[in-house]
Design a protein around this nucleic acid. Structure first.
Lengths: 173, 173
RNA sequence: GGACACCAAGUGUG
DNA sequence: CACACTTGGTGTCC
């Protein structure tokens, strides 16, 4: 047997994201679990989208890991899961971040942040149905809502707002 | 002044519908009022939905009117009121009974039965909050429940059961 | 045409 | 609290 498999830690990462309205105030909530110990994290943003929050939850979780790990990611976002497991994201990248209809891919800033993390860690994605009684998924949903809720400090999602500004500049031409 | 306004009768139509369970046994109750005289009607069905009963109450009430009338319809169903007053139903019809997300509209049989009635009469819809102490609304609720209750003769809602059969046929393919 | 998610409103039943 | 019946919108992909 390879020693690799026994020495690399196995981590579980639960993630959920939301925006209200969409686009609007957003947040993500994540649970990182290693053996019997869990940690929770969340962040809120002034102006973003549901899908960016779904992505950013996964990204932030993976970025917190200090050593190369086997990670199982649980999320209800088909957007995130399918883009990786069905290799869409690798196809987009190889085509200069164009989709099969040759229109530009959205959220490239986050996809380019996610790919090296998938390279570094050994990541398995598991899609779970939302609002179907998965305790960790529901806790992440709660964390995300709290993070964007009343009186919370909300960060700027520069990656989203810069896209908006680009669109605005285009319409000025 | 137009003689029209004074010669066309003004009718008040109160309607409520329910199903228990939903879908399941259902009924509607209506009150038709002209001047100081009121009449009550109700029907029960073996298998239907709450929304079909809310619609059918309004339809049956309008169908009972023998002459062109000014009708004010009172119902607690935002489904019924918004579909008309926000012109959703006309948009669906013009798109071949597809919604804005291009998925098929539900209960088309009842919408196509309602539209000519709205054409013929001069109908105003008023949304009233359910269970908020409106006496006529509560009476209609009672009539609906009686009509679907113990030992009542229940009719078949062909429009609903045929939809179920279609779905079943689809799943056999 | 399909899928998932996010948000909003009303009703029905328990 | 939970289920179902229905609609409007957006974010994203095939």
């Amino acid at each position: 047997m390879e020693t690799w498999k026994t020495t690399v830690p196995h981590i579980e990462l639960y993630s959920d994201g939301s925006a209200d309205p969409n686009p609007g105030k957003g947040g993500y909530g994540i649970i990182l679990r290693y053996k019997n110990i869990s940690k929770e994290f969340s962040e809120g943003f002034e102006l973003t989208t549901n899908n960016r929050m779904e992505m950013l939850g996964v990204i932030s979780g993976l970025e917190k890991l200090k050593t190369k790990s086997n990670v199982t990611v649980y999320t209800d976002s088909a957007y995130v899961v399918d883009s990786i497991t069905k290799r869409w994201v690798y196809s987009w990248k190889s085509k200069g971040w164009r989709k099969s209809d040759r229109k530009p891919v959205i959220n490239v800033d986050l996809w380019t942040r996610l790919l090296p993390l998938l390279d570094f860690h050994n990541v398995t994605f598991v899609w779970i149905k939302g609002h179907a009684g998965h305790p960790e998924n529901e806790r992440c949903d709660e964390l995300a809502k709290m993070a964007r809720g009343n009186g919370q400090i909300l960060k700027k999602d520069e990656g989203y707002t810069s896209t908006l500004e680009s669109n605005q500049n285009l319409s000025l031409l």
